[in-house]
């Protein structure tokens, strides 16, 4: 199960207008590395303070995939004040994910 899934329709309110930074996880069910990363993302979401974690299903939300020019998953994007702040592609360690928010 993905962590806090967000749809294209909810994106504006949940992500762009969010008062705290948002860590977005672009994933898909057929992507092995994405599923491997999932427990780490879940852990970060549970421990999150001062930011929130949401996931985008790349199969179901092609508009968001296109908007961010995603060409590989997993892709993690940090959105701060409605703008892309940081991006990382591929499976990375938990500490490196947290560092994207700094």
């Amino acid at each position: 199960m993905a962590t806090n899934p967000v749809t294209t329709a909810e994106f504006e309110n949940e992500v762009l207008k969010s008062e705290v930074p948002v860590l977005l996880d672009f994933w898909a069910s057929w992507c092995g590395p994405c599923r491997m990363l999932a427990p780490t993302i879940e852990e970060i979401a549970e421990e999150a303070e001062g930011f929130k974690v949401m996931s985008v299903n790349a199969d179901e939300e092609p508009a968001l995939v296109q908007r961010f020019g995603i060409q590989g998953i997993p892709t993690l994007i940090v959105i701060k004040d409605g703008e892309e702040y940081n991006r990382s592609i591929g499976v990375i360690p938990k500490d490196d994910i947290l560092a994207l928010l700094d």
């Binding site: 898909a28 092995g32 060409q71 590989g72 591929g90």
Partner: peptide, 17 residues
């Protein structure tokens, strides 16, 4: 260009192409 045209995992990224 990784994730912007370069990939090492076809099964991960193939669908974006």
């Amino acid at each position: 260009l990784i994730g912007r045209g370069i990939s090492y995992c076809a099964t991960c990224d193939g669908m974006f192409y």
